[in-house]
Write a protein that binds this DNA or RNA. Structure first.
Lengths: 333, 333
DNA sequence: CTGAAAGCGCTTACAG
DNA sequence: CTGAAAGCGCTTACAG
């Protein structure tokens, strides 16, 4: 391996000078610098990042901790994070936890050991004290897609209002028996989406049928079975609010498999606006989350934190959602 | 920050002893070790990975270089890589290049500087000399999903035979006018898939209609426009072989938008078997690639390389594909 | 502007 | 079994 000493020797200067010439932060004689650069090129020298990191106390790396990159909302988030990381000279370490707290803790432990200058979590839960602990130790942390109250920076969406808007739209288009497919209510975000649903129904004076509240959790549960069995029992809503696009897709399939039509018999509205949601049949009406932008914003915040704005108060950034109207909801008279 | 010296002081031993007690590779007096462990716990000491890496000349990190995590074939690959990385004490750095060679080179440059013990590329092209160069420098490299001949280890699929099988199936089910939607032919994999198509047609004595060979490249081009315009010009195949599932989905949408039905008017067969392909309408018949397993296998190979099997000859591992028959292909009399 | 020295936090021969 | 020392490859006060 070529080290700074090899370059120094070839350029006939000291290692210090090579370091200074390369950093550009300190004046170096023009001619000396040229000799150094020449040697760098000739030797194809690349500074050892570990040594640099050890000396400087930072690595220009951030960790991204998500449940599972195969869950289709995360690729866009990850891409957003990586793009601004790269733009700022950072690289990103990817960690899938499957929502397993022990795995997550062991990752954190590992990454915190100077591997990483900061961490973005897409896995926060109310019981994630390890994240709070990180924050207390003044370790840069930001949350994305989920938050933990005012204690730590986060980039999220207003799940409550977005759900109100979605269900309002269903109501305005003439739906009266609205089913909800809710994800894991241990997650605040699904409780918020449920509350939005409840509120919209209540405001419109519409009943909330308990048989139409379908709780669906577990990683790969898109609600297909729950919906199918509801329909088979003769409980037929005129619309379904799915709290994620995969669940909306599951709903559509279940409806079709029961011999009913979307949206003629049952309207379906989703939440996410995944790339594919435009391409399914019918194209999905859904709440669009700016996933890529959320990733970018989270990375921006984290890098600011790393670069020193540590004493600023944590802030929750709320990103705008948008109701995208396509073909899966029908105007009923 | 708590260092090994703090632990040493508290335990009343030298730093060397702490290091040895922690490593477990060298005998340490039982009582001494207990004192050390106690101090480690009391101080919540975590070794600085950079210092360790600098000393040992390895970081237990691998880099994964892919075109774009938002391309739906890559999440599963990435997950496979990360899972075996984790199982072996490695972490993975994720890099999206958008197939941009300059970006890729700059990533490689950066990661090679002792950041990373080895690299997995899902971006290889024939003209990727920088990968060959890495290999020559004995830097551990493995390719996934694409290969570069016998020079470097790779984990791939037999694109040619898989395509022959897919098109044969179309032929056996009575299709005679088979259109192909081909991806970027600068990529060997698409040339291979095209050759498979050509061969299957030829063997069956079926004509290859040039107007039914749709070249479609560019990142987000799923072929929708090309197919739609072909159909509008009155060129109506009885089947479409799409060289990727997103292109199959694009095809289905184009067909429906032209007022035709899948598979009654036109059958569609894909290539990939993405998670969503089961859920679209109709469920897609497609060539299933074991993406997750390919990721795992690539990581396994890379870790072997890192751990010293450097002098073994590079090997191309061919993973099995499987034709998954669903509803998008119709048996024609 | 430049060099010699110290030090970042570890690990590991070398002695004992 | 254990300690003191050297060294991994950098950067940066400290002198000059």
């Amino acid at each position: 391996m070529i080290t700074i000493k090899d370059v120094a020797k070839r350029a006939g200067v000291s290692a210090s000078t090579v370091s200074r010439a390369l950093s550009g932060k300190v004046p170096v004689d023009r001619e000396t610098r040229d000799r150094v650069m020449e040697a760098v090129r000739a030797l194809n020298y690349r500074p050892n990042v570990l040594a640099k990191g050890l000396k400087e106390g930072r690595t220009n790396t951030i960790g991204l901790i998500i449940p599972n990159i195969c869950n289709p909302i995360f690729p866009a988030v990850a891409r957003g994070v990586e793009d601004v990381a790269r733009e700022n000279g950072f690289t990103v370490v990817l960690c899938n936890t499957d929502e397993d707290m022990d795995m997550e803790r062991s990752y954190v432990e590992k990454l915190q050991n100077r591997w990483v200058d900061g961490l973005i979590f897409a896995t926060a839960r109310e019981e994630s004290e390890h994240i709070l602990k990180l924050k207390q130790q003044a370790f840069p942390v930001v949350l994305v897609a989920r938050h933990m109250g005012a204690a730590v920076d986060a980039v999220v969406v207003d799940n409550y209002s977005s759900s109100v808007e979605a269900v309002d739209y269903l109501i305005k288009t003439g739906h009266k028996k609205i089913c909800i497919v809710v994800g894991d209510r241990d997650l605040m975000l699904y409780r918020e989406r449920f509350e939005g649903y409840r509120h919209a129904l209540e405001s419109a004076g519409l009943p909330l049928y308990h048989a139409m509240v379908l709780d669906v959790s577990g990683r790969d549960d898109n609600g297909y079975d729950a919906i199918k069995s509801m329909l088979e029992r003769g409980i037929i809503p005129d619309a379904i609010f799915a709290t994620s696009d995969p669940r909306a897709i599951g709903a559509i399939r279940a409806i079709k498999d029961c011999g009913l039509r979307v949206p003629d018999d049952i309207s379906v509205i989703g939440f996410d606006d995944l790339d594919i949601s435009l391409y399914i049949d019918p194209p999905l009406t859904t709440v669009s989350q700016p996933l890529y932008e959320m990733g970018r914003e989270a990375a921006r915040k984290l890098i600011n934190l790393i670069n020193g704005d540590k004493d600023e108060k944590p802030q929750i950034t709320i990103m705008e959602t948008r109701l995208v109207k396509r073909k899966s909801v029908k105007q009923r008279l």
